[in-house]
Write a protein that binds this DNA or RNA. Sequence first.
DNA 1: CGGAGTATTGAGGCGCTTCAAAGGCGGTGG
DNA 2: CCACCGCCTTTGAAGCGCCTCAATACTCCG
Lengths: 248, 248
Amino acid sequence: MSSAKWAFEVFVERLRALSPLSCDDVAALLALPGEPVRLRGNTDIELPGERFEHACLVVTGLVGRFAQLADGRRQFTALHIPGDMADIHRVATPFAGSALQTLATTMVVRVPAKNLRSVAFNSPAITQAFWAYSAVDAAVLGQWAVNLGRRDAKARMAHFLCEMGLRSEFSGQGARNEFLLEASQGQIGDALGLTAVHINRTLKALRQSKAVTIDGRIVRIHDWALLVAIGDFDPNYLQLDQSARAAA
Amino acid sequence: MSSAKWAFEVFVERLRALSPLSCDDVAALLALPGEPVRLRGNTDIELPGERFEHACLVVTGLVGRFAQLADGRRQFTALHIPGDMADIHRVATPFAGSALQTLATTMVVRVPAKNLRSVAFNSPAITQAFWAYSAVDAAVLGQWAVNLGRRDAKARMAHFLCEMGLRSEFSGQGARNEFLLEASQGQIGDALGLTAVHINRTLKALRQSKAVTIDGRIVRIHDWALLVAIGDFDPNYLQLDQSARAAA
DNA sequence: CGGAGTATTGAGGCGCTTCAAAGGCGGTGG
DNA sequence: CCACCGCCTTTGAAGCGCCTCAATACTCCG
């Protein structure tokens, strides 16, 4: 089920939900070539400063965009689940300020930059859809900034889990209250700006609040409303509305 | 000097530095209409959830994008200095997840959304340039996230001041080591995820390190290299390269 | 079967927050 | 024109949230 074809379809559906596309546009997008690659966890895919050769469509696993400090500590600025296209914004600005890594064993499809550029060049609607897609990425990043700047560990975690739950559900991978999150506690710490130790304590607190448990890599949210309240979570920024309503 | 026309020219120059534009494109952009508006400090320009009616070109003063928590605390996700176009990304996704406010007495030019859409619709090159422009905004936000998640107060402040210095210099407003930053300490706190009190103590520490002083709203960086080292600052993400080299 | 990465928990310390108070500065209205 | 009021800056004291260091056990993979 989680084949390269499936990932392309999720990606194109997402684009269509954000910006109108003609049948020709959709056909051109689905005909995009791509080289499947399987990677272990904690592997750097793209280094900062590299030329833009291809975007990464995630098929299985988890991919993160990050920046690294002089002392080696990392901060994720985005997490991409199956069905997400990472790096599409680099069609507009090839320069890479940040890098990409896998968090778990991951399968991605490398889509050559020149093909992305040519479909965008041939259709203004596709360019606009790509732009809208990266604008949503930016909106998510904005919420992460709010999380990092103004919320304590418990609220940060709650907000993060609500976001990942909705995104997983929307991509057809499980439900918002039970989904796979293929990240270690240390990696979650790099997303939330906390240490691995404190992530562990925060999860313990949330478990004791009867809000959520994590078994292995499976997140089980027992009280969605409570987690939403703890995280002060408002899903609007994810822009899932149109399609969520269509599904309902 | 800081007229609406000047601000448009800075904006268009920035676009040209990011993405190639024809003479017709430039002419169309410079012919964009706009309604000048003068606003006091701490005025909300745009509320979350509002329809997208116009983008804001900053002429004088300072404008911030922010999100607000249930308890009223704010977190800025972007600061726009004169010459910056705020909200251009909403041409692609009209939905507003965050809001806009002035930090000081500010003059903006409201550029109607429909005119932005029509110039973009008529020229793929303009669409790409707008996209690249908002991609740089996103790259800046990414660095802010790193700042918020992984740096302590002193490094955060140093990084922030380096960024604002370079951006001011590049927009032709002062030099990187002496520029106007029209924000109170409380407002800087809302950008750096800290309290006003701690901003004050952090500035004191940086003053005692002989790195920087702030008199009134004028930032004077006495030791640029030191501030860069404290903030672990690498200017690449601002994408000023091409034009910086052209100017040098 | 060994080793590396991960999860869990404790103890102690530091950085930032909160609360509080005083002085300065600019803007506004009487 | 001046007096006043609100916002900003500055500093102190106390507390808490998160970090650091440390030790143990678990699981997965080669």
